Amino acid sequence: MIPAFLLRALTTSLLTATLCVAAALAPARAQSSDKTFDKVTFGTNWVAEAEHGGFFQAVADGTYKKYGLDVTIVPGGPNENNRMLLIAGKIDFFMAANTLMSFDAVANNVPLVAIAAIFQKDPQVMLTHPDAKVTKIEDLKPLTLFVSKEGMGSYFQWLKSEYGFDENKVKPYTFNPQPFIVNKQSAMQGYVTSEPFAVEKAAGFKPNVLLLADYGFNTYSTLIETRRDIVEKKPDLVQRFVDASMIGWYNYIYRDNSAGNALIKQLNPEMTDDLLAYSVAKMKEHGIVDSGDSLKNGIGAMSDERMASFFDKMVRAGVVKSGIDYRQGYTLRFVNKAVGAELRPKN
């Protein structure tokens, strides 16, 4: 089983709309018409949204073209499987939900490797009512907890091992916030970039938010994965894709992201300007994309120490087996070069 703890961790397929239209939106300055581009296909793990914004930005503003890449992004959905398409050689890169997927690949001898980590902090949160007076993670213990099946197999096991949480307090979370909204003595899982916004819109109150990453759940999130054969045979292509993606993320988070947002809305008509703005603001506020190691080494940064720390926590929680060589699931070869860091605001 591939461990994941959000519906967004469901993977995607080529049956969904692709971004072939992106070339028409890219600036004319990108490259001349006689330039030969390397064609690359990148699959996300959910429908187009701000949490994928840097990749869309790099398509829309011509950054990938500047790096000699003709990138097609394949957005995901709830009944798709892009990760299997990556394994089968049908696409070149995939957006993995979290580090647990890398551990799982090693455990099951799947020849995938993580080459960059876009989110330094996982966006997973627990939401509570203001009346519950929750100020720290231990305050969640007496509450009814709405947790998904995927969450029970991953982050909740960490809550049990690190903080002594009780499964008897858990009720199934079906991605419907209504049970949480009506129960003031409850907490609900979500992403810091979206669920608090949705609850406030639906219920008229601003929920309290506890970001699990701030309490030690130190998985990377939104990683770029590829196959080992691509790393071995096409390292220059991998480096260019990583570098251009990092620049796309700097531009999306810190600069004019209107081109990326226009592409997101084109592919996901349900996406709104206010949600896009909210998501970007929360990514910046909480250091989801740019904090910790990335402040020195650039967006996408990873470290052996961080990987070892999270692996040890998951072993203690019983989520992964101690005997696997988790180091085979990632490489630092293409990151920690501070590519694009000059685009970060100075103040």
Rank of each mutant, 00 (worst) to 15 (best):
residue 45 N to A: 12
residue 45 N to W: 00
residue 45 N to T: 14
residue 46 W to C: 07
residue 47 V to C: 07
residue 48 A to Y: 01
residue 49 E to A: 11
residue 51 E to T: 13
residue 51 E to A: 13
residue 53 G to P: 01
residue 53 G to A: 10
residue 53 G to L: 14
residue 53 G to E: 00
residue 53 G to S: 07
residue 53 G to Q: 02
residue 53 G to R: 04
residue 54 G to P: 04
residue 54 G to A: 04
residue 54 G to S: 07
residue 55 F to Q: 01
residue 55 F to D: 06
residue 57 Q to M: 05
residue 57 Q to E: 13
residue 58 A to D: 02
residue 58 A to S: 10
residue 59 V to Q: 00
residue 59 V to M: 00
residue 59 V to W: 00
residue 59 V to F: 00
residue 59 V to L: 04
residue 61 D to P: 04
residue 61 D to A: 06
residue 61 D to K: 06
residue 61 D to R: 09
residue 62 G to Y: 08
residue 62 G to P: 05
residue 62 G to N: 09
residue 63 T to W: 01
residue 63 T to I: 06
residue 64 Y to M: 03
residue 64 Y to N: 05
residue 64 Y to S: 06
residue 65 K to G: 14
residue 65 K to R: 13
residue 65 K to F: 00
residue 66 K to P: 00
residue 66 K to G: 09
residue 67 Y to C: 06
residue 67 Y to M: 06
residue 69 L to E: 06
residue 69 L to K: 08
residue 69 L to I: 13
residue 70 D to R: 09
residue 70 D to L: 12
residue 70 D to M: 10
residue 70 D to H: 13
residue 71 V to P: 07
residue 71 V to N: 04
residue 71 V to D: 06
residue 72 T to Q: 08
residue 72 T to F: 14
residue 72 T to W: 07
residue 72 T to V: 13
residue 73 I to R: 02
residue 73 I to Q: 00
residue 73 I to H: 02
residue 74 V to P: 02
residue 74 V to T: 10
residue 75 P to D: 09
residue 75 P to H: 11
residue 75 P to G: 09
residue 75 P to L: 11
residue 75 P to Y: 03
residue 76 G to F: 05
residue 76 G to H: 03
residue 77 G to F: 08
residue 77 G to W: 12
residue 77 G to S: 15
residue 77 G to T: 09
residue 77 G to R: 11
residue 78 P to W: 14
residue 78 P to C: 11
residue 78 P to V: 14
residue 79 N to Q: 15
residue 79 N to L: 15
residue 79 N to D: 15
residue 79 N to S: 15
residue 79 N to E: 14
residue 80 E to T: 15
residue 80 E to Y: 11
residue 81 N to Y: 13
residue 81 N to H: 12
residue 81 N to P: 06
residue 81 N to A: 13
residue 82 N to V: 08
residue 82 N to Q: 13
residue 82 N to S: 15
residue 83 R to Y: 04
residue 83 R to D: 05
residue 83 R to C: 04
residue 84 M to R: 15
residue 85 L to V: 09
residue 85 L to R: 12
residue 86 L to K: 03
residue 86 L to F: 13
residue 86 L to W: 09
